[in-house]
Amino acid sequence: MNIESALKEAMAVDGTLGVALVDYESGMTLGTLGGGTELDLEIAAAGNTEVVRAKARTLAMLAIDDTIEDILITLGTQYHLIRPLSSSRGSLFLYLALDRSRSNLALARHALKRIEGVLEV
């Protein structure tokens, strides 16, 4: 599945406000869909790049030899889900912003895992 198809599939998850594929080494997006005036995906991508980098540094300092499956940030009205892709795909992560009142977090996590499995970059 190419990037455009993957982003469209992620947007189909109930309650999705926006989705991005991001390179956390550079902070640049490889693709975005959704967002708009309520969510600037370029700013979100850059900010979440710092979150992923900080967590990776923390794991290294703790000598935890494991990988991050996903990172969840809960707000009063939104969920922000960050899923780093397997290291064989470089330094990429999928970012999904959800409306908390219209989404199911477990289904969203499952959908991102499935999308990751078929995404070809």
Rank of each mutant, 00 (worst) to 15 (best):
D14F: 01
R109Y: 14
L39P: 03
L17E: 01
G15T: 02
T49F: 09
I82G: 05
A106G: 11
L59F: 14
L21A: 06
V118M: 13
R57Q: 05
G76W: 08
D65H: 14
D70P: 07
E120A: 08
S26P: 12
S87H: 01
S5A: 15
M28K: 11
K8E: 10
E9Q: 14
T37R: 15
E25D: 10
E116D: 13
L107M: 10
H110P: 00
N2L: 02
G31C: 07
S101H: 13
T74C: 07
L17H: 03
L39E: 08
G36Y: 01
D66I: 12
G31M: 00
T67P: 07
L72I: 13
A97T: 14
L98G: 06
T37D: 09
A44K: 03
T74E: 15
V13T: 14
V121N: 04
R57P: 02
G117T: 01
T16F: 01
A60Y: 11
S88Q: 09
V19E: 00
T16Q: 00
T49W: 06
P84A: 05
G90W: 11
R53T: 07
I115S: 04
E25S: 06
R102I: 00
F93Q: 00
R83P: 01
L62P: 02
A97W: 13
V51H: 01
R57V: 03
R53W: 02
I68H: 08
I71C: 03
N104Q: 10
V22H: 10
V51A: 14
V52P: 00
L72A: 09
L17F: 08
T58S: 13
T74A: 15
G31D: 07
D99R: 05
A56F: 15
Y79N: 11
L112W: 02
I71N: 04
S86D: 10
G90N: 07
L105M: 03
S88E: 12
F93V: 04
R83A: 10
R53D: 01
D66L: 09
L75K: 15
L98Q: 01
G27E: 00
L33P: 04
T16N: 03
G15P: 01
G76N: 13
G117L: 08
A56R: 14
L21R: 02
M28N: 11
L30K: 10
L94I: 06
S88T: 11
D23R: 02
D23A: 14
F93C: 00
G90Y: 05
L21E: 00
S103L: 02
G36W: 03
R102D: 01
M1I: 06
I73R: 08
L107Q: 10
Y24D: 00
K113S: 09
N104D: 11
E42S: 07
V13E: 01
E42L: 06
D23L: 05
R102M: 00
G18I: 03
Q78W: 11
M28I: 14
T67H: 13
V121F: 12
T49L: 06
E116P: 12
R57C: 08
N104S: 03
T29Y: 08
G34N: 00
A106Q: 09
L85I: 11
M11A: 04
G90C: 08
H110S: 09
A97K: 07
V121W: 04
H80Y: 15
L7A: 05
L105P: 05
S86P: 05
A54K: 10
G15L: 06
I3R: 12
E38M: 10
S103M: 04
L119N: 07
A12K: 13
L62Y: 09
I71Y: 05
R89W: 06
N2A: 09
D14N: 08
S87P: 07
